[in-house]
Design a binder for these strands. Structure first.
Lengths: 331, 331
DNA sequence: TCTTAGCACTCTCAACGGGAGAGTGCTAAT
DNA sequence: ATTAGCACTCTCCCGTTGAGAGTGCTAAGA
C-alpha cells in the first residue's frame, strides 16, 4: 500500500487520494478500507497529508522504508546500459571528457541533476614529469599523476635554459621521482639544489592538492531537469541548491567520504544537514579501483524521485568510471 | 533625464515615478514638468510604462542609447583591480584554474552570472608530445599545444613497448611535429608507419578539435546572483537560460565570433535571437594575444544591469586573460 | 472483527468585488 | 515653458463566497 502511494506520488506530484488508489491499482476493497490503512500508515509516521481534506504524501521516513524494504531491485534496462557504455567507449580516448560524459549520462538516464567529482587519491604518486620550454626563462611543468590525471603549471626559470637541458631534466625527474608520494617528493627537495628544488617543491604541491580528499572540482549536469519539477517552482529553492554547488568548498560536507566501494549512499530530505537540501534527496555512489583512488558520482533531485532508477543509474555509471580508473592504472 | 530613470530603475527594479525623480535628484522643477519630459522620451521609444498609472521603465532601445551616449566611462576602482589581479597572480601557476578564477572574479565584481570560454586557436600548433607508459601495451599520449593547453588521450599499443622506446618516440615526435598545424600533422601521417601513424592521427585529431572556433567548453559562475533578481522569480525563466548554458553546442550562436580585439559586444533583451534571453543582456569581451588565440569572457544578467560596471569588469578581466595567454605563448 | 456505505466536516482554490493607493495625462492658469 | 489641480485608470490587497475534493467517523452488515 505504501508502495502504491509512493509510486503514485512520484508520478503525479499530487497528494494521493484513497479512491485514486482503488481505481489505479484495481483493488478489491472500498476507498473506506484503504483510508483506514492509510490512517494506520500515517500513525506509523510513513505518510502525512498537507491538510485535512487532502490525499496522502510520503514522509522522508516513508521513502526510507520504501527504499529499504519494498523497492523493486534497481537496475537499468540492457539497452540503456548499452547506450551509456557506448558513450563511454567514444570518450575513452579523451580523458578530460570522462567526467563530463558521466555527468551527462546520469542526468539523461534519471532526468535529475547529476554530480560527479574527479578521482582523488589519498596517496597520489607521480608517474611522469615533463618540463616543456615556453621561453628561454619560462617553462611549463607538466605532471602526470597516478590515475592518469595531468596537471600543468608555469615555471619561471632563474637562468636561461635550452630545450635539451629541459629534456634531460625531465628524464632525470621522472626517474628519480617516479612513483613518489607527496611526502617523498618533499624529502627529495632537500637533495635538489637551486632551481631544481623549486620544481620539486611545485611537484610536491601538485601531489598534495590531489591528496586532499575533499573534491575541489565538481561536474554538474541536468540542473534544469530538477528546476522543471513543481517543487522548484519558486526560484529561491533552486537558487539555494545552486549556490551550494557553486561553492566548491562546501562540497565535502555533502559527500559521504567514508562510503564503501560499490555502495550507494542515500540521504532524504531533512536527513541532510543543509537547510537548502530540505526537500531534496541525494543518491551518491563511490567509484575507484583499489580503494586508493576515489571519486563520487551522484544524483540530486526532489525527495519525490524514482529511487530505483537513480540507484541503478548511479551504480552503473559508477562501475563504468571504476573501469576507466583501472584502465588508467594499467590493469 | 533618461540617465536618471535608468539609474533609478537599476537600483530599485521598480517603475520610476516622476515625483521619485524630483526628490531623488533634487530637481528644481515640478513633477508635472518631469512628466512632460518623460512623455517625450516615451514617444522617442526610450521608455515605456507597464500600465497607465505606473512609473517609467527603460526599453531595450533606451538602454542602448544610454550605453552609447550617456553612460559614465566604464572602469573599475583601483582597489578592485588590485584584488582581481592579485587573484590571478595566485592562480598563475595552475593553468587549469585560470578560467575558473576569471569566471568567479567576473561574477563577484558584477554580481551577475559570468561566462568564460577557454582559448581556442584558428591554427593550433603542437608544442610538445609525450607518450607516458601506463602498461606494456597501453600509454597516455600527452600533447601540449600552442597556448599551453594540455590534452591527453589513452593509446592502445599494438606491440609491447618499453618506457625507453616511448621516451625516444616522444622526443622524435616532438622534434618532427613541433610547431606543426593539424594539416601538417595529417601530412606527416603518411610518412609514419604502423603504430606511429595511429599516434600521429590522434595528434591531428587533438589539434583539429582546438581549431574549431566554436567553444565546446564553458565556465559559468554566479548563476545564483541573477536568480536572486526579481525578473527571475519564476523558475522557468532561469531554467530556460540554464538549459542554454548546459547545452554547449548552442553556445556558438551566442558568442560574437567576429568581435575585434579588446572590444566589448553588448546585446540587450530582444536583440537576442534566443527567446530565452529575451529579458537578459550579454556583455561579452574577447581575449587573446595575436588574434590567433581567441577566447571569450562575459557577463549575463537582466537587461536592468549596471552596464558601466559590467563593461569595466569584462574589459579588465579580458585584459588579464590576454596577459596570461601572452605568457603562455612565451612573450 | 473486518469491511463499507453514508454523511458531516474541513480545507483549498478560484472567482468576484470593492476600496485604497499610486501615478499618470490633461487642462487651464501663471 | 512651467505648474497646480484634478479626473481617470490601473494594480494590489483583502475579505467573501461557493464549488469541489477528500477525509474521518459512525453505524450497519458480512
Amino acid at each position: 500500500m505504501l508502495g502504491a502511494v509512493i509510486r503514485e506520488y512520484i508520478a503525479t506530484a499530487e497528494p494521493v487520494a484513497s479512491t485514486q488508489l482503488v481505481r489505479g491499482y484495481k483493488l478489491d476493497v472500498s476507498p473506506a478500507t484503504v483510508r483506514n490503512e492509510l490512517a494506520a500508515l500515517e500513525d506509523a509516521g510513513l505518510l502525512t497529508h498537507p491538510h485535512t481534506s487532502a490525499g496522502r504524501v510520503p514522509t522522508d521516513l516513508g521513502y526510507r522504508y520504501f527504499i529499504e524494504t519494498l523497492m523493486p531491485s534497481p537496475s537499468l534496462r540492457t539497452d540503456e546500459q548499452v547506450t551509456v557504455s557506448h558513450q563511454f567507449q567514444q570518450a575513452l580516448q579523451d580523458t578530460a571528457a570522462w567526467l563530463r560524459v558521466a555527468a551527462s549520462s546520469l542526468a539523461r538516464l534519471t532526468s535529475e541533476a547529476s554530480i560527479v567529482t574527479p578521482p582523488a587519491s589519498k596517496r597520489t604518486t607521480l608517474r611522469h614529469v615533463e618540463v616543456v620550454p615556453i621561453h628561454e626563462r619560462r617553462a611549463l611543468l607538466v605532471a602526470v599523476v597516478d590515475g592518469g590525471a595531468v596537471r600543468q603549471q608555469v615555471l619561471e626559470l632563474g637562468t636561461a635554459t635550452t630545450a635539451d637541458q629541459l629534456r634531460t631534466l625531465s628524464t632525470r625527474l621522472t626517474e628519480s621521482l617516479g612513483g613518489a608520494t607527496a611526502t617523498k617528493v618533499h624529502a627529495a627537495v632537500a637533495a635538489e639544489k637551486g632551481a631544481d628544488a623549486d620544481i620539486a617543491r611545485a611537484l610536491a604541491r601538485i601531489l598534495e592538492e590531489y591528496d586532499t580528499s575533499g573534491a575541489r572540482e565538481l561536474y554538474v549536469d541536468g540542473f534544469q531537469n530538477i528546476m522543471a519539477q513543481p517543487e522548484f517552482a519558486e526560484s529561491d529553492r533552486s537558487r539555494a541548491m545552486l549556490s551550494l554547488f557553486e561553492d566548491h568548498t562546501r562540497l565535502a560536507e555533502i559527500l559521504p567520504l567514508d562510503l564503501g566501494d560499490g555502495e550507494v549512499h542515500i540521504t532524504i530530505g531533512r536527513e541532510h544537514r543543509h537547510e537548502s537540501l530540505r526537500d531534496c534527496s541525494l543518491v551518491i555512489g563511490r567509484y575507484g579501483a583499489t580503494g586508493d583512488v576515489v571519486g563520487f558520482v551522484g544524483v540530486v533531485g526532489p525527495t519525490r524521485m524514482d529511487y530505483a532508477r537513480s540507484i541503478g543509474a548511479v551504480r552503473y555509471v559508477g562501475s563504468l568510471m571504476s573501469d576507466l580508473v583501472r584502465v588508467m592504472e594499467g590493469r
